[in-house]
């Protein structure tokens, strides 16, 4: 084997970092543009778009766009609604989808392969095709609330959460991950007399950090970016999420600075969520990559 020339290695490293930096810059520039623009008055914002100044904190900077955004729309309500709906859906989804996957992988019951195939087949059905039937269904469903039995789920948090708890992709992710867990662990636990519930809680889930993070992030993004579903099932402002709220800013004469301020505000929860889970997320992606 030929010896590695240190100068070549340095060059390779430099090239690699240069390429990686370039890719990172390409991905981060839209975010930098959004944040910088949120501090600029509209006229300056539009003029800066033709130059590199669009990415720099230069010119007349202020928090005026943020103040105007809060005046134009109940931003805090929208963010609260989205975080609440997304958070609850993610938690419930992780629980129920992992339970379903557990039963597909570890329990023996007749028809489980067919059931799993059907669930996976739902991945190819676009949501738009079932939106109207689902709307008709939820508008007639009963609910027992503080005031007793009521009919119809429209204008509520539950209508934004419950239909999204179980989904084929999340179940599929858990199934694939559970299949690669050592069977010996499960069998040893059974021999020791552990119930299936105990195995799920005390053996399988503690080993499932990476897939939990992956499923959580993917679900978070889907839920936080919801537009069509809340648009058709929620008519009251008090239940509207952030993406429907974005429409408040698209008037005849669009105040782009306010749009950027609003987008910056609603991006914060997404970035925070990703940063918290990124190590586990990368671990999951990396482990998926080496399975081959």
């Amino acid at each position: 084997m030929a010896a590695i020339d240190p100068s070549n290695q340095g060059l390779r490293l430099a090239t690699r970092y240069a390429v990686l930096t370039l890719i990172a810059v390409i991905f981060i520039f839209p975010l930098v543009f959004m944040v910088m623009s949120s501090f600029k008055p509209d006229l300056q914002l539009l003029r800066d778009t033709g130059s590199f100044r669009a990415f720099l904190p230069v010119g007349d900077l202020s928090l005026n766009n943020y103040a105007a955004a809060f005046d134009r729309a109940p931003v805090a309500t929208f963010v609260f609604n989205s975080v609440l709906v997304t958070g609850l859906t993610v938690l419930l989804s992780l629980f129920f989808c992992s339970l379903a996957a557990f039963s597909f992988v570890f329990l023996n019951w007749r028809g489980r392969n067919i059931a799993l195939s059907i669930i996976i087949a739902t991945l190819i059905v676009p949501f738009e095709t079932i939106a109207i039937p689902l709307l008709l269904l939820v508008s007639k469903l009963p609910w027992i609330g503080w005031e007793g039995l009521e009919w119809g789920w429209l204008n509520s948090y539950r209508v934004q959460i419950i239909p999204w708890i179980a989904d084929g992709l999340t179940i599929f992710l858990f199934v694939q991950y559970f299949k690669d867990l050592p069977r010996e662990l499960i069998e040893a636990s059974r021999v020791e007399g552990a119930s299936w519930w105990q195995i799920y809680i005390k053996v399988v889930m503690p080993l499932s950090g990476p897939v939990l993070a992956t499923a959580a992030i993917l679900k978070f993004l889907v839920m936080y970016n919801q537009y069509l579903w809340p648009l058709i099932v929620v008519q009251e402002e008090s239940y509207r999420p952030v993406m429907v709220g974005l429409q408040y800013f698209f008037q005849l004469n669009i105040a782009w600075g306010e749009v950027m301020a609003y987008l910056t505000l609603i991006t914060v929860p997404v970035l925070a969520f990703y940063l918290v889970l990124q190590k586990a997320f990368i671990a999951s992606i990396a482990s998926t990559g080496v399975k081959g």
């Binding site: 058709i232 008519q235 429907v244 709220g245 429409q247 408040y248």
Partner: peptide, 15 residues
């Protein structure tokens, strides 16, 4: 919001 209004009405009519 105006951009969401017509779709909201049509959906509400269906429901």
């Amino acid at each position: 919001p105006q951009g969401a209004y017509n779709d909201s009405v049509v959906a509400a009519a269906l429901a």
